[in-house]
């Protein structure tokens, strides 16, 4: 695995296996996530990339019958976030997530962004105002919505809703953000603005992104992992993966021979 020596390690999956009931969806995954860099997971549908991403915030705990085996370590405190003794809520407090389909809550724009803060027990209006504005600015949405913070989030366009979801995740200052195909439900213009935003966000937060759009991975990410059939076939810096892959399967996929 190639890694830039300058980059700090934020998280690391070691010998990770994951099972949906009897079915093994992830097979012995080893992968590092560099701090304040963008790591992309690519691969054909059903290769396990979303399943892997959702291990990072213990999303699989919501459904019965799922089982993790192995570990995902979060640095700097060196904890295994898959440890059953660790409360998944604690993990989700530190690692935010943006979903495939924009999923704003049936609340106002303001309350959507304030949600994570309220869940953490913050109710001081001044503090909320300040954090909401900062998060909306961070998601490049403030100028578009500052005059209608109290209108329902459903009134926004799809791209705006997705940026609202990014603002919602940013509001609680996560250490790491997970993006699960964040632009697959959006038109090309909204996609471009989200991509630009993600590229900016790496200044402040570590990003792990799943995408089935290879150009997107090539455009925004620093590192890319190619997954196939529940395994990481190849993991390297993005340039290497796209110009000089060492595995035949990776080359076939990125040149469009399957997937």
């Amino acid at each position: 695995m190639s890694e830039n020596a300058m980059d700090l390690l934020k998280s690391e999956a070691k010998n990770l296996n994951f099972y949906y009931g009897e079915y093994q969806a992830l097979k012995n995954i080893n992968l590092t996530v560099a701090e304040k860099r963008i790591t992309a997971l690519i691969g054909p549908s059903g290769c396990g990339k979303s399943t892997f991403l959702r291990c990072f915030n213990r999303m699989h705990d919501l459904y019965p019958g799922n089982r993790y085996d192995g570990q995902i370590t979060l640095y700097p405190d060196d904890v295994n976030i898959l440890n059953p003794k660790i409360d998944p809520i604690e993990v989700r407090m530190r690692i935010g997530m943006v979903f495939q389909k924009p999923n704003p809550f049936p609340k106002t724009i303001y309350e959507n962004v304030a949600y994570g803060l309220r869940v953490r027990g913050i109710s001081n209006r001044r503090k909320l105002d300040e954090k909401v504005e900062k998060a909306l600015c961070g998601a490049a949405l403030w100028n578009e919505v500052k005059d209608r913070l109290n209108s329902l989030a459903f009134n926004l366009s799809g791209g705006q809703q997705q940026r609202l979801c990014i603002a919602r995740a940013l509001a609680t200052d996560p250490e790491m953000m997970l993006f699960d195909e964040p632009t697959s439900a959006l038109d090309p213009i909204a996609t471009a603005s989200i991509e630009e935003l993600i590229a900016q966000l790496k200044e402040q937060v570590t990003i792990l992104i799943v995408t089935h759009n290879m150009q997107q991975a090539a455009r925004v990410s620093d590192y890319t992992a190619f997954m196939h059939m529940g395994e990481v076939v190849e993991f390297a810096d993005t340039n290497t993966i796209f110009t000089n892959p060492s595995q035949k399967r990776t080359e076939d996929y990125i040149t469009g021979r399957y997937g």
Partner: peptide, 29 residues
Amino acid sequence: VPMHIREGSYAMGATRFQTALRVVTPAAF
């Protein structure tokens, strides 16, 4: 109420109770 709305709430670190009361109930209003 679609599961992805609930997942959005859980992903923010909300408990089941917070999710039920603050997200699912208004969504199903």
